[in-house]
Design a protein around this nucleic acid. Structure first.
Lengths: 171, 171
DNA sequence: CCGAAAATGTGGACGCTGTCCACTGTAACG
DNA sequence: CGTTACAGTGGACAGCGTCCACATTTTCGG
C-alpha cells in the first residue's frame, strides 16, 4: 500500500520505482530517513528560538522544553511522516559517522545543558535521555492512538503536563 | 496479511472468517480486545503479589512499580499481542459500562494508592496517569524499535531506570 | 423425531498489492 | 557516431481482502 501509491502520484508505472529503490522497504526507509531529518531540524529550530543562554538555568530548562515541544508538534502536524520515521529507520541513534545531528543528539545536548547549568547532577544525567525520550514519544503515540478522541485543547494541556512531568524528574 | 493467515492456521478457507467477523479490521479488533484483557490481567496479577498493604508507603510504591513492570514484561514477552493491542482497540480507556478493569484502571488505582499513602498530593495526582502511561508505553515502543539492538541486560536496566524516573516525578 | 431454520464452510471470482522479467527509449560522453 | 548507463514500459505472477452463490452441518420447536 505504498509503492504503487507513490509511483501513481509521481505519474509513473510501478516498476519505475525499482530503478531507484531495491524494494518497498527500501523506499519506506528512505522516506523514514527524510522524516527523521525533518524532525531533527524542527528541534534545532525550536531550540534556536530560545533567548537565554544555554548554560543559564532558565535557558537550559527552556531548551529541554523546546526539544519536547518540537517532537510533539511534529507528531501532530506530520502524522504520516512521524509514523514512517519510526516504522523503518535506523537513523534514530546518533549517526556513527558525521552527518546532521539526530533527534536524540538534540535531546542529549539539552540534557547536557541542564548539567552545565547545575540543575541536573551528572549522576542523574547518566542514561536519562531514554526515559525522557520514552515519555515524549509515548505521549505522541498515545495521542494518535487510545487518546485520539481527546479535544485539541485537552491534548495541548496534556502535552504541557507531560513536559512538566519530565522537568520534575530531570532536575 | 492477517485474515488469510488466521484462516490458514485454523485450517479453513478464507471466506469462513466472514461468518465470525465483519471484515479484517473487526477480526483485528477482536484480537486487540483479547490482548488488552491479557495485559490487564497480568497487571492485576503482579499487583496481587505485592505483600505490603496498598495504603502503606512501600506497598503503594511497589504496586506502581508492579504495574509498570507488568506492562513492560507484556510488551517484551508478547510482542505480537502488544502491537495488536494498540493497533485497533478502543478498549484502553476504562470501559464505560462494567466489565473487567482496563490497564488504565489498574494504573489509576496504583496512583490513588500513592495519594492514600500520603506520597502524592491530590493536586499532583490530577491527570498524572497519562504522563505515567506515556513513559512506560514509550519505552516499550522504543525498545521494540530504535532501541531494539540493545542487549537484554541493557533493556532490563533501562526498564528499571525508567520506572525510577517515574517514581521521581510521581512523589 | 422430523423438518425448517440458523450457523458454518466451500469454490470461484474481482481488484488491489509488491515483485520479477524482457524490452524500449533517452541522455551522456569519449 | 556509437556505446553505455539510466529511466521508464508492458505483461505476468502470487498473495491479499472481499463479494457472491452454493453446500453442509447443527440446532430446536412442534
Amino acid at each position: 500500500m505504498v509503492l504503487r501509491e507513490v509511483t501513481r502520484t509521481v505519474g509513473v508505472v510501478p516498476n519505475a520505482a525499482y530503478r531507484h529503490f531495491a524494494d518497498r522497504d527500501a523506499l519506506l526507509a528512505a522516506v523514514s530517513d527524510e522524516a527523521v531529518g525533518q524532525l531533527a531540524r524542527r528541534m534545532a529550530a525550536r531550540m534556536g528560538e530560545v533567548r537565554p543562554g544555554p548554560h543559564t538555568p532558565t535557558g537550559a530548562r527552556l531548551r529541554l522544553r523546546a526539544v519536547g515541544q518540537a517532537y510533539l508538534e511534529f507528531a501532530r502536524t506530520e502524522p504520516g511522516l512521524f509514523d514512517t520515521a519510526f516504522a523503518a529507520s535506523d537513523r534514530h541513534l546518533p549517526a556513527a559517522g558525521a552527518g546532521e545531528p539526530s533527534p536524540l543528539d538534540h535531546l542529549q545536548s539539552a540534557l547536557d545543558n541542564l548539567v552545565a547549568a547545575g540543575l541536573l547532577s551528572p549522576a542523574r544525567r547518566q542514561g536519562i535521555e531514554y526515559p525522557t525520550w520514552a515519555t515524549v514519544h509515548g505521549l505522541a503515540v498515545l495521542l494518535r492512538g487510545p487518546l485520539s478522541s481527546l479535544t485539541d485543547g485537552e491534548k495541548t494541556r496534556l502535552e504541557a503536563q507531560t513536559l512538566a512531568f519530565i522537568g520534575a524528574s530531570v532536575s
